[in-house]
Deep mutational scan, measured.
Amino acid sequence: RKEMTAACTPRRRIINLTSVLSLQEEINEQGHEVLREMLHNHSFVGCVNPQWALAQHQTKLYLLNTTKLSEELFYQILIYDFANFGVLRLSEPAPLFDLAMLALDSPESGWTEEDGPKEGLAEYIVEFLKKKAEMLADYFSLEIDEEGNLIGLPLLIDNYVPPLEGLPIFILRLATEVNWDEEKECFESLSKECAMFYSIRKQYISEESTLSGQQSEVPGSIPNSWKWTVEHIVYKALRSHILPPKHFTEDGNILQLANLPDLYKVFERC
């Protein structure tokens, strides 16, 4: 597991931080080997919608929660590849102030007048994250320049770009939802926020969305749709870069829909 690298990086740093090793061990302890084997050997059937997909393993048909699986995938990559990410360069710098204002204007932020003026909160978020810029760049390849612009994001899987519609809320939550006081809790909560931002979430995906850094293989055609990215990038990574937690067998994120021999018997009677 320590050699797990989802995106190509030129050289690998050895990380011996106790906090990170502890988080890696927790993933191992909570892992479910049968689910790992199923995901490793599954045959992708198709997307139901951005949140759900169908896959077959041996004779069984499964309904998989793409949102939760991708979130767990990105969390584990962030923990196992800690401080070893490439950088996704933004085509132009994104001012943190503008991103924070967009987030505060969104109902998702939960902002009320009692929280104070949005401009003041946005300025605080910019200054707060600028103070964390060195650590964010060093460990997470999340790059913020001296003017308070976001200029780079971590490359977690080759050819995958997170849904940038979720970027404003991500920046807001970096400042408000991460435990910045304790090292282990900081790395864990920061990785979880980043994983949620990178995950496939239906509120940020339309039929026209593209999450891939590449064009489709047909010359002159439109960019790959999110469905292509889910199948050929995300579920491909799920084959080798995730140890599913045991609770996925109990919380409805992986559901067995049918045993195909039983279905064949039904059709034979028709």
Rank of each mutant, 00 (worst) to 15 (best):
S106M: 02
C8G: 05
S141C: 09
F44Y: 12
P223D: 10
K2S: 14
E231R: 14
T9D: 12
P163E: 08
M38C: 13
M196N: 05
A6I: 12
A237G: 10
F170V: 00
L164C: 06
F128H: 02
E146I: 06
A55Y: 14
L260H: 03
L150D: 00
Y139R: 07
T229K: 12
G120R: 15
I144M: 08
H42E: 09
N84E: 09
C186R: 02
L136N: 01
Q215S: 10
G86I: 13
I144C: 02
S141T: 08
I27R: 09
T67F: 09
L99H: 03
N84T: 13
L69C: 08
F267Y: 08
P168W: 00
A53F: 07
F170W: 03
N224P: 06
T18E: 05
G220D: 07
F85C: 08
I15D: 12
W228H: 05
S225F: 12
S216R: 08
N16L: 14
I77S: 14
Q76T: 09
Q203P: 09
A7K: 08
K2I: 14
I169M: 14
P163W: 04
L164T: 02
S106R: 02
E143P: 03
L35E: 12
G152R: 06
L156G: 00
L153W: 00
E33A: 11
G220A: 08
S191I: 02
Y235V: 13
E127C: 04
K131N: 10
C8F: 06
D145W: 00
V178Y: 00
S141W: 02
P244V: 08
D138C: 06
I125T: 13
S19Y: 13
L155M: 09
E188P: 03
L167P: 00
S189L: 06
L211H: 08
E147P: 05
F82D: 05
H42N: 08
Y75L: 12
S240F: 10
K60F: 12
E92V: 06
Y204G: 11
K265S: 04
E114Y: 15
R1D: 15
C194F: 05
G166C: 09
G220W: 14
L255V: 04
W228T: 09
N159I: 06
I200C: 12
D98F: 13
I222N: 09
P219V: 08
Q215F: 12
E71G: 08
R173Q: 15
A94V: 06
R239L: 08
L63S: 13
N84F: 14
Q76Y: 09
L136M: 10
R89Y: 15
R269W: 15
L129Q: 00
D105W: 14
I27D: 15
E123A: 10
Y198M: 08
L238I: 06
L174S: 01
T249P: 10
G110V: 02
L104V: 01
S199M: 08
E143L: 12
Q203S: 10
Y160N: 00
P163M: 05
G166N: 11
K132R: 03
E185D: 06
R36Y: 13
K132Y: 13
G252M: 10
E25G: 04
Q76P: 00
N224F: 07
N49D: 08
L238T: 11
P162G: 01
D158Q: 06
E37P: 11
F140I: 06
K131L: 13
Y198E: 00
G110T: 01
T5I: 14
Q76A: 13
L23Y: 15
L190M: 05
E25P: 15
I157T: 09
L54P: 00
E71D: 07
T229G: 05
I169Q: 10
L121H: 01
W226H: 08
T59A: 07
F248W: 10
L21I: 06
C47Y: 04
S206V: 12
L156N: 00
R89V: 13
S191K: 11
Y198S: 02
Y75Q: 13
D138Q: 03
N41W: 08
R173G: 15
P93S: 04
Q30F: 12
E188R: 04
P154N: 00
T112Q: 10
W111M: 15
I169W: 15
G116Q: 02
R89P: 11
L155Q: 10
E71T: 08
H57C: 09
S189Q: 02
K2F: 14
D138S: 03
F197E: 00
I222H: 09
L61G: 13
W228P: 07
H32L: 12
I14V: 05
G166T: 11
Y124H: 01
F187L: 05
T66C: 03
E217F: 11
L21P: 13
I171T: 05
E29S: 07
G166W: 08
W228M: 04
P223F: 09
E183K: 02
F85V: 09
N65H: 10
S212Q: 10
T18R: 09
A122V: 14
T112M: 15
G116R: 02
A55P: 00
T9H: 11
A122T: 02
G152D: 01
P168K: 03
Q214T: 08
R13W: 15
E165N: 04
M135R: 03
L190V: 03
E268L: 13
G110L: 02
N49W: 12
V20A: 12
Y80N: 03
D181H: 02
K130N: 14
A122K: 01
D262M: 09
D138F: 04
D138M: 04
L167R: 00
H57G: 12
H241K: 11
E29Y: 14
N28M: 11
E119V: 09
M101D: 01
L39G: 05
I77C: 14
I151P: 00
E183L: 04
R173V: 00
S206D: 08
N224C: 07
G86T: 06
S109M: 15
C270F: 15
L104T: 01
